[in-house]
């Protein structure tokens, strides 16, 4: 079992405020990430997160530029520059919202499984999750794309968050990783049947 081999060392015990649903979701997402990246050694692809960082960086850059420009060329002079910056900023905020809703869609990990012989394209694992506020059910969806056949398969599960945290809010990775292993095996065994 993966659980016995991968007990967390004392220093990386994840203890959170168990009444904070955001913290719960982050801890679970991190746990799932750990299974795929640290235990299975798949390569994490950062493109989605990088896209979001780029949008935010440009937006903040526009704001800072407006601030500096307005300082050197006080208001009535700086009007047109300010207008451009303000419009760009709010357009970028709109783009960010669209990006979060339609591109990221709760995806927190894109992991690439390299073919050991380096001959075939990578298999892709896309993990997304949701945990509604004031809800105890953590919904996890794993989408698997086979690198060679381009075939896609999806499994999802809903578990009560209480199954993975103890009373003090310590995250029990050894209870969580078998669930993920199970889901992963389901996806792969599907493949054999076909």
């Amino acid at each position: 079992m993966a659980s016995s081999k991968n007990l967390p060392a004392a220093e990386d015990v994840v203890k959170i405020d168990k009444w904070d649903s955001g913290a719960l979701k982050n801890a679970l997402d991190d746990g799932a990430k750990k299974v795929f990246v640290d235990v299975l050694h798949y390569k994490e692809s950062h493109h989605l997160m990088d896209g979001r960082l780029v949008i935010c960086t440009i937006a903040v850059f526009f704001a800072m530029f407006a601030l500096v420009w307005d300082y050197f060329y006080p208001f009535p002079e700086s009007r047109s520059v300010l207008m451009v910056c303000v419009i760009s900023y709010f357009v970028l905020m709109g783009v960010l919202t669209l990006y979060l809703t339609y591109a990221e869609k709760g995806i927190f990990l894109v992991a690439l499984e390299k073919d050991p012989a380096m001959m075939e394209p990578d298999n892709k694992w896309v993990l997304s999750s949701s945990l509604r506020k004031y809800d105890v059910m953590y919904n996890l969806t794993i989408q698997y794309t086979d690198g060679k056949t381009r075939e896609e398969r999806v499994v999802s599960c809903s578990k009560c968050v209480a199954s993975f945290f103890d009373e003090n809010g310590v995250f029990c990775f050894d209870l969580f990783s078998p669930v993920l292993e199970g889901l992963r095996k389901d996806l792969l065994s599907d493949k054999k049947k076909l």
Binding site: H46, M49, D50, R52, L53, C56, T57, A59, V60, F62, A63, M64, A66, L67, D70, F75, R79, L82, M83, C85, V86, Y89, F90, M93
Partner: peptide, 26 residues
Amino acid sequence: RQLYYQLLNFGMIVSSALMIWKGLMV
């Protein structure tokens, strides 16, 4: 990446306030 996003998040809160103000100026 998460640390940088955290900083950006803070930056965006400040920026939003600033841009609303500058927008009102315009």
